[in-house]
Design a protein around this nucleic acid. Structure first.
Lengths: 117, 117
DNA sequence: CGGAAAGTTCGACTCTGATCGTACTGTTCG
DNA sequence: CGAACAGTACGATCAGAGTCGAACTTTCCG
C-alpha cells in the first residue's frame, strides 16, 4: 500500500480538530506543514523546529492529526511523508489554516513584535 | 467593582485559545454564548445545555475562558453575567466564532444532518 | 443584623493524555 | 539473505487538567 487510511472530511468534527490542535507539539507540526505546503517528513520537521521527542511519540501525534482529518500520510520507500489536507480543511473549516499561518507560535517565536507596550 | 479584569486582545495567543476551546464543557458554553449574543448567566446556560457540574467547576471554566480572552464577566447584583468578546475575538481571529456557530456540537447535537451521503 | 443565594478560592482526588522504551513490521540495499 | 533504517504498536509511567467539596466573600432582602 502507498496510502494510509484517513477519515472523510465530512465526518470530521470541530471538537476533535480543536483537541488535536490544543497540543503544542501538534500545533508546531501543523504550522510547519502550513508553511511547507508540500509532502514533508514529520520527524525532520519537528527536529528542525527544535522539538526533540521520541519517534514513538512523533508517530502518536501524527496519528492524532491524521484521525482528526488535518493531515495525510503517504508511504515513500523507507519513510513516510505527511502533508496538510489543505483543500479539505479549508472547505470544512474556512479560515482555520490561515489563522494558524498568521499567528506564529507564541512559545517558539518570541521575536514577534508584541513589544508595543 | 462592576467589572472583572480581562487580558488585552492583542496579548491573546492562539495557543491559549485553542487549549481553552479543547474542553467539551467550555466549548458548549462558548457555543451557547455565540447563540445568545448577550449577557447571560454561565451556570444557567450550562444547566440548560444539560451539563451538570459543580459550581466551583463552572467558575473554573469561566476563568479559563476569560483568561483566554474569549469572554467577559460583569457583576450584576448577586450574580455574574458573561458574554462573548465578539468584536475582539473576531478582530484577532476572524472566522473563529462563525466556525463554532456553524459547527453544532458533535457530542450533544447528534441530530445534525450529516446524513447527506 | 442575620440569613440566603451566587460565585470564588483552595486543597485533594481522579483520570485522561503525553511521553518513553521495547518489540515488531516493512523497506532498502550490500 | 541479512543488516540497517523508518515508522508502528503496545505497555508502563508521570504530569497536568477537570472535578468536587468545604470554607470564605459579597450582595441582597426580610
Amino acid at each position: 500500500m502507498t496510502e494510509v487510511i484517513e477519515p472523510a472530511i465530512e465526518t470530521v468534527t470541530i471538537d476533535v480538530v480543536l483537541s488535536a490542535l490544543a497540543d503544542p507539539v501538534r500545533l508546531t507540526l501543523v504550522r510547519a506543514l502550513v508553511a511547507a505546503g508540500d509532502w514533508t517528513c514529520g520527524s525532520d520537521v519537528l527536529k528542525e523546529a527544535g522539538v526533540t521527542i521520541g519517534k514513538s511519540t512523533v508517530s502518536h501525534h501524527i496519528k492524532v492529526l491524521r484521525d482528526a482529518g488535518l493531515i495525510r500520510t503517504r508511504v515513500d520507500g523507507i519513510r513516510r511523508l505527511v502533508t496538510l489536507r489543505y483543500d479539505d480543511v479549508e472547505q470544512r473549516f474556512p479560515g482555520l489554516l490561515s489563522m494558524l499561518r498568521e499567528h506564529a507560535s507564541a512559545r517558539t517565536a518570541a521575536a514577534a513584535p508584541t513589544s508595543s507596550a
